[in-house]
Design a binder for these strands. Structure first.
Length: 470
RNA sequence: GGCGCCAUAGCCAAGUGGUAAGGCACGGGCCUGCAAAGCCCUGAUCCCCGGUUCGAAUCCGGGUGGCGCCUCCA
C-alpha cells in the first residue's frame, strides 16, 4: 500500500518515496523542557506517533527521533528563579513529559537526543558554517547565521521579505550586532553569572535554538547526497522561523537538504484560540490526566485529522468517551477468547485510511462500522468462533495502529473504582439478582436506582449483569 | 501591513470534479419484567455571490466570518 503524505513545503499530498527502500527516517521537534506539557504537546506527539505506527504497519523499518531542548533562555530564567540546577530542572520535566506521553499511549522514539548531549555536533556544524562564510561573529562574541548567504532561504516557509521591511529594520540594527533582521544566533556568548555556559573552542557560551535540531539530525542520520532524513515533523508554528532556519543551516553546512518531506500538525485551541504558554490559556496534561484516562484523551485527540486545528471542549470529550465505550462493549462481548488474524478487508480499509496522510478520522469510522457489523452478528447468534477470533484480531490491529482499545474492558468501564467500592457494588448487584429471581421487581429497581446514584449503570445480558462506572 | 489556513446536519467530523463516511444528541421501532446495552429506521445540497464544466461541497474570482504565522511557542 502506498503511503501518501501532505508535504507542507510543496503544499500537496505526495507519495512517500523514502531515501532508502523499505526504511523511513523521522525527526520531530520535541518540547523545550522548562514547564509542564500541555494538550498541544500531546497533539504533536500523537500525530507523529500515528505516523510511526502507520509506517511500521505498512512494513517500513522506522527510525524515529524526537529531541528535548534542554538549554534555552526560558530554562535559564527558570533556573535563576527557582535556584535549581539545569539538570535538576530539565530531568524533572523530561521525566514528566515521558510519563504523560506514556499515559497517552505514545511510543518512545528510538532516539531522544538532548541539546546538552549534542554540543560536539553543534560546535562542528557552527565551525563549518564559519569556515564557509555562512556565519559571522559579532563584537559581543555571538555567532550568527548569515541568511543572505543562502539563496534558498525562504523556500521552506515561502516567505519573501519585502525590501521596505528589510530597509527599515536595517536602520534600527545596532552596529556590531547582527547584519540582517532575519539572521539568527547559532552560538550565544556567555552573558555572565546568571547564564549557563559551556566551554568550547567557539568561546564560552551556549547554542542557539535552531542549530540543535540540524546538528542532531546530522549526528544521528546519514541519508544520501540529497537529503539527510525522510520526514521532518513538528507543530505548525515551527514552520517559520525554526524550520526555515534549520533547513538553511544544514544546506549551507552540508550542501544538501535536511529533509525530503515536511509535516506540520495543527493547533489545539481552547475556546477557539490557540493554546500557548504565552497566552496563559494552557490546558496542562497533568490536569487533563487527573480528570480523564489517557486513552480517552488519545482517542479524542486523534478523532480530528492532524493538520486541522483542534478545538478542545468537555462536551466533545464526553461524546468521544461514549464512542470509545462502544468499542469496549464489543470487546467485552467477545471476551474471554483468543484473537486471531484481523479480517483482511478490515485491515485493508484501516490501513488505507491511515496511509492516506494519516486520516485517523476515517480510520475511526472504519472501526465504528466494524463494531456495528460484529454487534449485529452477535445479536443474531451467527457469530461463530472464527468470526469472534477475527473481530478480536481487528481490535488488536486497532490497538497496534491507532493505539486505542488495547485495555481490558472491565478496567476501562471501572476506571477509578477502589476495590472496596467494587465489592460493595457487586454485593448490591447480587442482591438485585436475588430480588429479580423472586420476581420482586420493585426491590430490584430500587437497588438499581441506588447504584445509579453511585454513578453505576447496569446492563442485564445473557452472560449476567454487567456494570459500568458512568 | 505581509503571508497562510479554515467555514459540511443541533454538536464533533471525513470527503479535493460525478449527485454528502462515521460518532454524539433527538425522535420512532425491535429486544427487555422495566431499563440499560445492542440492532433497525429517521435528518444536511455543503457560509454568501458570481464563473468554469455535461456535472462542483470539491476548481477559479469576489465577499463575509473565524484562526494562525511574521518575536519564544507543539
Amino acid at each position: 500500500m502506498q503511503m501518501q503524505i501532505f508535504d507542507s513545503v510543496r503544499k500537496k499530498k505526495l507519495p512517500f518515496e523514502p531515501i532508502r527502500e523499505g526504511e523511513a527516517t523521522l525527526y520531530v521537534c520535541g518540547p523545550t523542557v522548562y514547564d509542564d506539557a500541555h494538550l498541544g504537546h500531546a497533539r504533536s506527539a500523537l500525530s507523529f506517533d500515528l505516523l510511526a505506527r502507520t509506517l511500521q504497519a505498512l512494513g517500513y523499518r522506522v527510525t524515529y527521533a524526537r529531541n528535548f531542548t534542554d538549554i534555552d533562555d526560558k530554562i535559564i530564567k527558570k533556573i535563576n528563579e527557582t535556584g535549581k540546577s539545569l539538570r535538576e530542572l530539565t530531568d524533572y520535566y523530561i521525566a514528566r513529559y515521558l510519563e504523560e506521553m506514556e499515559a497517552l499511549g505514545v511510543r518512545r522514539p528510538d532516539i531522544e537526543p538532548k541539546a546538552t548531549e549534542t554540543l560536539d555536533a553543534i560546535e562542528a556544524m557552527i565551525t563549518r558554517l564559519l569556515e564557509s562564510g555562512c556565519a559571522y561573529r559579532t563584537e559581543s562574541g555571538d555567532i550568527y547565521f548569515d541568511t543572505s548567504k543562502d539563496p534558498l532561504y525562504g523556500s521552506i516557509s515561502h516567505r519573501v521579505q519585502s525590501e521596505e521591511e528589510t530597509q527599515s529594520r536595517l536602520c534600527e540594527l545596532k552596529s556590531g550586532e547582527k547584519r540582517h533582521p532575519k539572521d539568527f544566533a547559532l552560538w550565544k556568548a556567555c552573558a555572565g553569572e546568571e547564564d549557563v555556559c559551556f566551554d568550547a573552542p567557539l568561546g564560552s557560551g551556549r547554542p542557539g535554538w535552531h542549530i540543535e535540531c540540524s546538528a542532531m539530525i546530522e549526528k544521528h542520520f546519514c541519508g544520501n547526497d540529497r537529503y539527510t532524513i525522510d520526514i521532518h515533523g513538528g507543530g505548525a508554528d515551527l514552520l517559520f522561523p525554526h524550520h526555515e532556519n534549520e533547513a538553511a543551516q544544514t544546506r549551507c553546512a552540508t550542501g544538501h537538504e535536511i529533509a525530503k518531506y515536511w509535516m506540520h500538525n495543527g493547533f489545539v485551541q481552547i475556546a477557539g484560540e490557540k493554546m500557548s504558554k504565552s497566552l496563559g490559556n494552557s490546558f496542562f496534561l497533568k490536569d487533563a490526566l487527573a480528570l480523564y484516562p489517557g486513552e480517552l484523551l488519545r482517542f479524542y485527540l486523534i478523532g480530528v485529522h492532524y493538520r486541522n486545528d483542534f478545538n478542545f471542549s468537555e462536551e466533545d470529550l464526553a461524546a468521544a468517551k461514549k464512542r470509545l465505550d462502544r468499542l469496549y462493549r464489543l470487546k467485552q462481548r467477545l471476551l474471554p477468547g483468543k484473537a486471531g488474524e484481523a479480517d483482511a478487508a478490515f485491515r485493508e480499509a484501516l490501513l488505507a485510511a491511515m496511509a492516506d496522510d494519516l486520516n485517523s478520522s476515517r480510520a475511526l469510522a472504519v472501526v465504528d462500522e466494524m463494531i456495528t457489523v460484529a454487534n449485529e452478528a452477535l445479536d443474531e447468534g451467527r457469530a461463530d468462533k472464527a468470526l469472534r477470533r477475527a473481530w478480536l484480531g481487528n481490535l488488536a490491529l486497532v490497538d497496534t495502529v491507532l493505539g486505542v482499545g488495547g485495555s481490558d474492558p472491565y478496567a476501562w468501564f471501572q476506571h477509578g473504582i477502589a476495590p472496596e467500592e467494587k465489592e460493595r457494588i457487586e454485593a448490591l448487584i447480587a442482591q438485585r439478582n436475588e430480588a429479580k429471581k423472586a420476581k420482586d421487581f420493585a426491590r430490584a429497581d430500587a437497588i438499581r436506582d441506588e447504584l445509579k446514584t453511585l454513578g453505576v449503570a447496569l446492563m442485564d445480558t445473557p452472560e449476567g449483569t454487567k456494570w459500568e462506572k458512568l
